[in-house]
């Protein structure tokens, strides 16, 4: 029975004291802070980006081969930053996907209870390491080793940055993917065992395919984290935005460029500063898209088994 005719939240429960209503109003106001934050992010990024596109044609943004806003003859090709982000992310995923999925399989299918708590603890530990520490490790430990193994490897390169990134995002894959695998009904596993499947076959031929949407969501989520990961890229991958797919070269990701630009001094309202926000807007749209996609997929597989 709904007695309220008004649509506002405050009048929903009539006859309450003003104090009670004030409390509710304050709490409602706090919950709006997150909405305002999102709104502010969008307004800030896109108003600056709009100003940017008043001066720089979209074709330049999309197709120019370089990103050099501070040069005498500036170029604004986001492709250079996207290529760098792609290299960094792809190398991270090459590490994180197999390791993350194996860990998920271990957590969901093999590990006894106490053991899985321990493994989750290790994953939490990995998640808790500040990324500036990972960056330090990539630049000063991994890169010198890799330079001995890979000829022509620059000091700043997406290989060692990406390798370390892989471990930073591994927990996201293993957590979400193991949840998805645990959501696969026991009856499917039993059906496969009853047909004479080995455990490996149950995992790979029944559990993996049944959990595939959750696994895909896990990978997308990890991709989103990787694209937005800043310190590892800024420290170890470099800050030189050129259009290349050679992983031995110094590159710049969108995030490392933002750091580089911000630690320099660019007056508000300058074109270089607006360019910075246009990179931020691209980064925001990309990660938001990944996150929403992952959520949609997770919601869909939840429905399937409930």
């Amino acid at each position: 029975m709904n007695t309220s005719t008004s649509t506002t939240w405050a009048s929903k429960k009539p006859g309450r004291s003003p104090g009670e209503r004030l409390v509710e109003a304050i709490l409602f106001a706090t919950s709006l802070v997150s909405v305002l934050t999102t709104a502010a992010v969008i307004v800030v990024l896109f108003s600056e980006t709009f100003q940017f596109f008043l001066r720089v044609p979209l074709t330049e943004f999309l197709f120019a081969p370089e990103w050099t806003p501070l040069f005498a003859e500036p170029r604004y090709g986001i492709g250079a930053l996207l290529a760098g982000t792609f290299l960094f992310t792809a190398i991270g995923l090459v590490i994180a996907i197999p390791l993350g999925l194996l860990t998920a399989a271990y957590l969901a299918e093999y590990a006894p209870h106490e053991q899985s708590i321990r493994v989750k603890g290790i994953m939490e530990l990995l998640e808790g390491v500040p990324t500036v520490v990972f960056g330090y490790f990539a630049l000063l430990f991994l890169t010198p080793i890799l330079q001995n193994l890979i000829p022509g490897l620059n000091l700043f390169n997406p290989i060692s940055a990406g390798l370390v990134l892989g471990f930073a995002i591994l927990p996201y894959i293993s957590n979400v993917a193991s949840d998805a695998m645990m959501a696969v009904p026991r009856s499917l596993r039993e059906a496969a065992y009853a047909l004479g499947a080995t455990k490996f076959e149950v995992v790979t031929k029944v559990v993996f395919p049944a959990a595939v949407s959750g696994i895909v969501a896990a990978i997308i989520l990890a991709t989103s984290r990787a694209v937005g990961e800043t310190m590892i890229a800024a420290i170890a991958a470099g800050q030189r935005p050129i259009l290349t797919l050679d992983p031995r070269e110094t590159i710049a990701t969108m995030t490392s460029y933002i750091v580089q630009a911000a630690t320099g001094d660019q007056p508000a309202g300058s074109l270089a500063s607006r360019a910075l926000f246009s990179v931020g807007a691209t980064l925001f749209l990309l990660t938001l898209g990944f996150n929403i996609l992952a959520q949609r997929i997770v919601e869909r597989y939840r429905e399937r088994y409930e």
């Binding site: 059906a191 009853a194 047909l195 004479g196 499947a197």
Partner: peptide
């Protein structure tokens, strides 16, 4: 090997989320 020789059907139908054909030939493919 035992379960290959002795089949089992469960309380609730539990087909794999695969095609009808792939369900039937699952044991053979194994």
């Amino acid at each position: 090997e035992v379960r290959r020789h002795i089949g089992m059907v469960f309380q609730k139908p539990n087909p794999f989320p695969k095609t009808i054909f792939e369900n039937v030939v699952f044991g053979l493919r194994l």
